[in-house]
Design a protein around this nucleic acid. Structure first.
Lengths: 168, 168
DNA sequence: ACAATATTTCAATAACTTTTGAAAGTTCGA
DNA sequence: TCGAACTTTCAAAAGTTATTGAAATATTGT
């Protein structure tokens, strides 16, 4: 397989994966393009590489920077801005986990806490079922929260290798 | 807070969470409705409870059954079919993990394996960067795969409590 | 076998998301 | 301060996904 083919296929697959994760396709593709680029790329190069418009490129690069997995760099002697992706996939993983936790898990934890306050008679089976479900989910959510926090904090591989030993 | 309010809010939040996870909103809401119902619900009850059409209800209940987190039950003396949700959230979690792994991680692993075969000269920095990225991602993906498999296989809580002890 | 009741399908359409590209804004060197 | 080079914005258009509801299909009791 030739490099150009391989690159194209990688960009495609990464884009698909992103789409299934609620990240928009272009955003994931830009990330892929930057991941395999040996040098920083300019906005123009991104536009050409993926055949997308200027506005689209700008918007998605900005979002990637928000997520903390792409950075702006200045190349000496160049007026333009260039971009690079975090190449350590572990870091990329923790960055994504951090972002998703913030957007998804934290709000639901807040709601669950509220919903525990539902009034009512334990003898009413509707009340009982509701309460039990809430308590169950809350327990699970807290465990997930703890695991995720540990993952996010671990910038090193020790966590992972320890985990793997335990679950084997 | 009254039960009816609390229910409505839970359904709303669960729907939102689902949407962010790439599950469609209605599917998540039906799941929420079933989770807090003390008795099996019929298609009609789901339609009324969420104010959705018959077709929509049918389609999404079916999908939930595909995922293995909702079941059809027959109530003696009734012609209709009724539905219940798996109430053990841990099980729900593993079912979702299983489904997502199948749809997302497995295909990317396959592609990565292919892409490692890219031809070329190690001295070319483009080839080198590409190879390194692929190897990196592959390593990470395999670790994730291992962790996910362990999680999926664990139907019991031992895995989780052990994990929590280790990372504390 | 028939009528009554329940479920499934699917084409039309509504709702939502992404992309474009031209215009407005910014920055920088001379 | 001007203008060239670049970046950002945003309203309109394209593209995608979810929902409806009526028609087709299936199931059940008599």
């Amino acid at each position: 397989m030739k490099l150009s083919e391989a690159k194209a296929q990688f960009i495609q697959s990464w884009g698909l994966l992103g789409a299934q994760w609620g990240v928009n396709r272009t955003m994931a593709q830009i990330h892929a393009l930057l991941l395999i680029a040996p040098e920083p790329l300019s906005a123009e190069e991104i536009m050409e590489g993926l055949d997308i418009s200027r506005g689209n490129a700008n918007m998605n690069v900005r979002e990637l920077m928000n997520w903390g997995i792409v950075e702006k760099v200045l190349v000496p002697g160049e007026r333009k801005e260039f971009f690079i992706a975090e190449k350590d996939i572990w870091r990329v993983g923790t960055a994504i986990a951090r972002e998703r936790k913030k957007r998804e898990l934290d709000p639901i934890l807040k709601v669950l806490l509220q919903l525990n306050k539902v009034e009512g008679d334990q003898k009413d089976k509707h009340v009982k079922a509701f309460r039990e479900t809430m308590q169950n989910i809350q327990k699970f959510a807290h465990q997930t929260d703890a695991a995720l926090n540990a993952f996010i904090k671990s910038e090193e591989n020790w966590f992972y290798s320890t985990l793997l030993k335990v679950i084997k």
